Amino acid sequence: MTDSHCHLDFPEFAPELDAVVERARAAGVARMITISTRVARNGDIVALAERFPDVFFTVGTHPLQAAEEPDVSVERLVALSAHPKCVGIGEAGLDYHYDAAPRDLADRVFRTHIAAARETGLPLVIHSRDADADMAATLRDEMGRGRFSAVLHCFTASAELATTGLELGLSISFSGVVTFKNSGDLRDVARGVPLDRMLVETDAPFLAPAPHRGKRNEPAFVAHTARVLAELKGLDVDAFAAATSANVDRLFSKLPPRAGQGAPEISRP
């Protein structure tokens, strides 16, 4: 299994990071992608990925930090992405829930990351919260300027945005939110996402899945989310884990081959 989105550099993990990684391995998590929120902290993420062989990383500015890094450049992102363990750009996007940055600035920073993804060929990790219409419009506009690969991470948005993302060739990643009792609409969206476009993540340390809801999340807990999603897709959890890890391999193509790579062909509801 692969945790396609976590934040192992966050201070919540500092006191026991080795134990967190070991628990993930014991739970069957073969790889973790720790996602950047600030380009300024790239050195910390690089050091973390170099410390653990099964941890990889991205480079980018989260929309909540867009005002802190308004002048991040395509050239800077491209240069930092050359590290052999950097496998993606972002997370970047639009967040109208907190509106931490002026919307025009957030849009500009987001489009800079799209340009970097396009130039490098690395996938863009997209954050979108309460911004469905503008996100859909931006993605359509930018895809018309030149194709790029991307994932809508921690998807909690509308079925309409999911449809737009799928039509544009994007992948969709689900977090522990899909396990919550009040997330029936989100589970309906997940049922409709083709298996070969689906990823699973923790977004740790946030959004721990049931039965750990309310606690600090960690990569080992991705197994709980995977079980719920596997049931939605009518698969056993091993087949679901194999399929979604193969999806990660396709999207994050800079990742090195997994040991014993070669997931079996299965039907894709």
Score class of each variant (00 low, 15 high):
219 P>G: 10
10 F>E: 10
68 E>P: 00
24 A>Q: 07
57 F>D: 00
11 P>A: 14
81 S>N: 10
5 H>L: 03
79 A>K: 13
5 H>I: 02
207 L>N: 10
17 L>Q: 12
108 R>L: 02
187 R>S: 09
117 A>S: 15
76 R>Q: 15
81 S>Q: 07
254 K>H: 15
224 H>W: 08
96 Y>L: 02
38 R>H: 12
238 D>N: 12
138 T>D: 07
9 D>P: 04
131 A>I: 05
234 G>A: 06
248 V>E: 00
249 D>H: 08
126 I>M: 02
25 R>M: 08
95 D>P: 03
133 A>M: 01
154 C>F: 05
251 L>G: 09
15 P>E: 04
215 K>N: 11
71 D>S: 15
75 E>D: 15
92 A>K: 05
52 F>C: 02
218 E>A: 11
55 V>I: 11
101 A>S: 15
233 K>Q: 14
38 R>F: 06
53 P>Q: 13
231 E>T: 10
104 D>R: 15
54 D>K: 14
84 P>T: 13
220 A>T: 03
144 G>Q: 11
155 F>V: 04
155 F>H: 06
215 K>G: 05
86 C>F: 01
162 A>P: 00
57 F>A: 01
193 V>C: 03
33 I>L: 14
267 S>P: 04
208 A>V: 06
166 L>T: 05
69 E>Q: 14
236 D>A: 06
145 R>G: 12
159 A>H: 13
65 Q>G: 01
14 A>W: 11
247 N>V: 10
132 D>V: 05
247 N>F: 09
72 V>E: 02
21 V>I: 15
41 R>D: 15
95 D>M: 05
4 S>Q: 07
52 F>L: 00
10 F>C: 02
267 S>D: 13
